[in-house]
Design a protein around this nucleic acid. Structure first.
Lengths: 198, 198
DNA sequence: TGCATTCCTTATCTTTTGTTATCGTTTTGG
DNA sequence: CCAAAACGATAACAAAAGATAAGGAATGCA
C-alpha cells in the first residue's frame, strides 16, 4: 500500500515542518527506515519494555495507555501524519510505562531510536530537530497537564469538543475518550446527557 | 550576598550536569547574567505577559501557578539549584499562562531568553543543552501528567510523601500543596486525617 | 505585648464521581 | 447467519470531593 519511498517522503515532510534538513543529513536516516504494519490490537510499544523505535503514522490510529490495577488509562491517540513512539522511554532508556496499540489496522514508517540518537549527536540539523521536537512535546504535555489540573471533567469534555481534536469522538470508542479525560465511561455518559439539554 | 562570579559558577555547574560546555561557549552567556532579588510575593514571570528570561534559583523558593476564576492552581515549586522561568512561554513566544512568584525572599541568577535562544542556534554545545533541557522538562511533565490522570488525590498525596519532594511539606504552606495536587485544602486535610489512623 | 491575619482542622451540607448492575444495540468472529 | 462480545445509556447506591462556616493555633507586625 505504501512504498518505502512514499513513506520516506511523508516522514521528511513532517520533519521539515520542524526544521529543514540538508539532503545529506536526511540521507543518513533513509537506509534505516522500515514499514511497520499493525493489525488491530497489535502494539508499537509495550509497557515494561524499553522502547527502541520511533514511527510516523501513515494510515490508521494508535492509542497510548498506562495500565493501573488491571485497567487501562488512555493518555494519547496518534493518527495520520503524527510522530509516535514511547519517546520518554527512548530518551530515558527506562522501561516504558505505556503501551501503544493499534485501534485499527495501521501502517507506520519507523526507524530505530538508536540511529536517530546518533544523528542528533552528529549533525547540527538533526540536533536542532531533536530540540524542537522535545520542545513541541513539552508544550503539548504542559497543556494536557494544565487541563487535568485546572478543568473539571465536564470542562475537559467541552474543551475537547471545541478543540482541534473534536473528530476524536467520531474516530474512537467513547470509553477510550472517557479514560483520556480521566473519568469513567459512566461519568462521561452522564456529562453528555447533562450538556445536551432538552 | 551572592557575587555575580559565584552565581555564574553555580549556573555553569547546573548546565554542565546536562552537557559540558566549552569555555568559549560558556563565555558567550556570562556577560548577560544578572542577579535578580525578589521579595516575598514578587514575581519572576507573570500571567498574560510573554516571558523573556530564564533563571536559576540560588536561594529561596518560587511557586508557579495558573489563575482560574480568581483562584490559583499551583503547578510547580522551584528551589535552590533549579532552573526556573515560564519556559513554555519563552519557547512559544505566547503570553505566559502562569505566574512565578517568590514564596520567600529569593535570589536568582538570570539571563534573557533571547540571548539563550541565539546561543542555541549558534553553538553545538548550547544546541545540545537545549535539547537535553527540553527532554528533561518533557519527562518531568509526563510524570506529573500521569500522576494526575492515574492517581486518586489520596494516592497523589501519598506518592508525594514517599517521593523526592517530601520536604515540600515542611517548606511550603499546605494549601499550596493541596492546589499542587489538584484538590482543596479542606480535602487535603481530610486525607491527612484519613491516612493517619489511630 | 496585643491585635490582626494567615493557616490548618473540623463539621455540615451539597454536588459530583465511582461502582455495580441491567438493558438494548451494534459489532465481531466463527 | 448466528452466538458472543463489545458498546453506550441509565438507574441506584456508596464514596469522595467541593463549598461554606466556625474555631483554634501560629505568625507577623505595630
Amino acid at each position: 500500500m505504501y512504498t518505502l519511498v512514499q513513506a520516506a517522503t511523508q516522514l521528511r515532510q513532517q520533519i521539515d515542518q520542524f526544521t529543514p534538513l540538508s539532503d545529506d543529513e536526511w540521507a543518513r536516516l533513509v537506509p534505516h527506515l522500515t514499514i511497520v504494519t499493525l493489525q488491530k490490537q497489535q502494539t508499537f510499544a509495550r509497557q515494561g519494555i524499553t522502547a527502541d523505535r520511533i514511527g510516523l503514522v501513515l494510515d490508521g490510529a494508535l492509542r497510548q495507555f498506562y495500565t493501573k490495577d488491571g485497567d487501562e488509562r488512555t493518555t494519547y491517540f496518534f493518527f495520520e501524519h503524527q510522530l509516535t513512539g514511547a519517546y520518554m522511554s527512548c530518551v530515558t532508556g527506562r522501561p516504558s510505562p505505556v503501551t501503544i496499540e493499534a485501534l485499527t489496522p495501521t501502517t507506520c514508517v519507523s526507524f530505530p531510536y538508536a540511529v536517530f540518537h546518533d544523528l542528533l549527536e552528529t549533525y547540527p540539523g538533526w540536533q536542532r530537530f531533536g530540540r524542537l521536537l522535545a520542545e513541541y512535546l513539552m508544550v503539548a504535555l504542559e497543556e494536557r497537564m494544565a487541563s487535568l489540573l485546572l478543568l473539571s471533567p465536564e470542562e475537559r469534555y467541552l474543551s475537547l469538543l471545541e478543540g482541534p481534536y473534536k473528530d476524536l469522538l467520531q474516530r474512537v470508542p467513547q470509553h477510550y475518550i472517557a479514560s483520556y479525560l480521566g473519568i469513567t465511561p459512566v461519568s462521561m455518559s452522564r456529562i453528555r446527557n447533562r450538556i445536551r439539554p432538552r
